[in-house]
Amino acid sequence: MTSVPHRTAKKLGLVIDLDICVGCHACAVACKEWNSGGHMAPLTDENPYGADPLGVWFNRVHTYEAGVGGNSRTVHFPRSCLHCEKPACVEVCPTGASYKRAEDGIVLVNEDLCIGCKLCSWACPYGAREYDYDSGTMKKCTLCVDRIYNENLEEAERVPACVSACPVSARHFGDLGDPNSDISELVREREGYDLMPEMGFKPVNKYLPPRPRRNKVGDTGAPAALDSAAPLSATHGAETSSNPLLRWVDRALSR
């Protein structure tokens, strides 16, 4: 029986900082690379060198513009499974192939049970499910379950591939169920939000919103403009105003 566990011991997940994501796709490709040989391998690519390539990706990076005109904001937006607390993808799955782990909350697919009915992908509002036409099974982000606990990796490497690759550190991994974890702290501090909370899926992953721009007078403490340098000593008197260079005449400077 795979109905969703009431509570999970941990709520492992990702926090993605939209304020600093530069949209480099490193997370997406690193994910593809790790997982191509990982728990859900392969991430099949159909027609890879042809007219209409179609690949399985667990993480995809969108680029949006928000707002209009010169004040619009370009926001890069990586999207992968949010490991929801109430994942309809699991509820709708007729076979039990989709499940949520009680120990850490990771939502996974057991490919050997999956019949490829695709219903879970219909049930997921976040587009996190990826059907592999070739294997006939549903695949998805595993939260790198085969990395984060992997004893064959050095301790520091036991984080999701996307997190370890992200060059700007826009991705964070941790236990969002523990209010004292660094990542929970970060979410509180930066007012991390849920995607489409109205769906009621209670995503574990959080997004940190873009912070306000600092592009107005006063934002850095500098005045709106520099004052012209004060006129020079009386010795130069009237000349100063006509020749601004004279202000540097009397500087005693040594090399």
Partner: peptide, 25 residues
Amino acid sequence: IRYIEGNRDHPVNKGVLCAKGAAGI
């Protein structure tokens, strides 16, 4: 090649990897 990852000790990238680097395979 199972996978390629950034070298954390390296002065240039300190462990991170870009999209191209991760697609080296």
